[in-house]
Amino acid sequence: MLLQQLVNGVTLGAVYTLLALSFSIVMGILGILNLAIAELFMIGGYLGFAVITAHLSLPVAVAAGMAGAAAISAVIEKIGYEPLRDAPLVTPMLSTLGFSIILQNIATNMWGSDPLQLPDEFLGGRIALGPVSIGELQLIVIGVTIVLVAVMAYIVQRTSMGRALRAVAENRDVARLLGVSGSRITLTAFMMSGALAGAAGVLIAIHYAAITPYVGVEIGLKAIAVMVIGGTSRIWGALLAGPLIGIAEVLTVAYGGSQIRDFVVYGFMIAILLFRPQGLLGGSGADQGQRV
């Protein structure tokens, strides 16, 4: 059972990783919490659903979810963030909350509040590896997550756009002096973040095969915890922290603590913040937190 539970934990962790990364791109560069990410995830899921039930392939679904969520994220940046760029950090955070309320309402009116379920034919088979059974979709979720994290890491660390992103993260004014357009980079960061949330939404919706307009709420808060544990400025941190929290959750449940699961996760997050504020993998830490 333990091995099977570890597989469960890693799958859950993969999703946390993608969402945490989505939070940390905006957080790491702009220092704000984009509360609408949970809803971008949800919208991505619905888009993925629509594509899959139209009998198109999974890559198309992932692409559609990413594109749709990135586009909405761009709108959020233009209306909700850019005009409030100079305001205290809490103000744009609340404007993203406004978008999250609107997106939930739109989803409810379009698809209903009851869970939308994927027909049986899309559930996918299972592979038995000794005592452990892994779903094909589980493997896909984990695989796509690793690929996306690698792509993100490459973009941020190796490309000129990534250098520009890091420059803006370090110091917006200096970056501008060096000829980097802050507003363009901000928009890019929001869209990348949206695309990741959208991809996570599609993967989750297809793997768990059921989705509601409120699907992002709980998992969004957990992803914030994962982002903190992994460190807000290290891409690879999320890849480590996601499965770590996923496994911690799964083991808490397996060994009799399903009711204190959330207590454990958030307790862990606070402990990390207090004793290793730079996250598991280091990087710039909480002592440099921007003013709210």
């Binding site: 950090l89 958030y266 997050m269 606070i270 913040l273 504020p277 937190g289």
Partner: peptide, 17 residues
């Protein structure tokens, strides 16, 4: 020990706990 948004996230965790 915490500042800014990091403190905010720690309090978020406290509330959920």
């Amino acid at each position: 020990r915490l500042k800014g948004i990091f403190l905010a996230m720690a309090t978020l965790g406290f509330g959920e706990m």
